[in-house]
């Protein structure tokens, strides 16, 4: 229809026949990419919470005080949470941090079955890998201090989470200050 309607187009078609364009290049095979079996793109279900079997305690503890030798006791002795805090881009221990770590060391020297992973953390104002390095320095500051207080080195390991484990989501001085820390992640024997 179009050609009938537009006489000019028919002429172009004719001249097109006379100058047929070059042949299309040779076939290139497009092979499918071998892929691992695709998974459904849904968030994985959270692993079941491992319930800690309650320990049978003979002695009724003092009112409102944690059971001696427990995770809670360790946190309590550390001043609420086994965590010490650092300045921006710093990894040296403040007098307060040393005080907390002395109490942690005393506890660890009392309960010698316990081990700990020292986790170094950074605030979000740094790039991922630099902050991993910074967290490693902080974790080592904590570990070295605990060793200096008599904790056996083989009971302690140090890793860095960089800025991946914030405990405070706020992007302000308070939030950042809380996220720059060294966390003593206590592992009691028989509890994973």
């Amino acid at each position: 229809m179009r050609r009938l309607f537009f006489g000019g187009a028919a002429l172009v078609m004719l001249s097109a026949c006379a100058t047929k364009p070059p042949v299309v290049e040779e076939v290139s095979e497009v092979v499918p990419v071998a892929k691992p079996a695709p998974e459904v793109f849904e968030p994985a279900p959270l692993p079941p919470v491992i319930e800690q079997a309650p320990e049978v305690v003979e002695v009724v503890p003092q009112a409102n005080l944690p059971i001696p030798g427990s995770q809670e006791d360790f946190a309590f002795q550390s001043g609420g949470e086994p965590r010490v805090f650092f300045g921006y881009d710093q990894f040296d221990l403040s007098p307060e941090a040393r005080d907390v770590l002395r109490r942690q060391a005393n506890w660890l020297n009392l309960y010698t079955d316990a081990t700990a992973i020292i986790e170094g953390n950074a605030d979000e104002r740094g790039t991922r890998e630099y902050n991993l390095a910074l967290g490693a320095r902080r974790a080592d500051s904590v570990k070295a201090f605990l060793i200096s207080q008599g904790v056996a080195p083989n009971r302690l390991s140090a890793i860095s989470y960089g800025k991946e484990r914030p405990i405070d989501g706020r992007s302000n001085e308070e939030g950042w200050a809380r996220n720059r820390n060294g966390f003593t992640n206590l592992r009691l024997r028989g509890v994973s």
Binding site: V23, V24, E25, V27, S28, E29, V31, P32
Partner: peptide, 8 residues
């Protein structure tokens, strides 16, 4: 340019 691909 002129290209031809063969694929599934």
């Amino acid at each position: 340019k002129g290209v031809r691909f063969a694929t599934t």
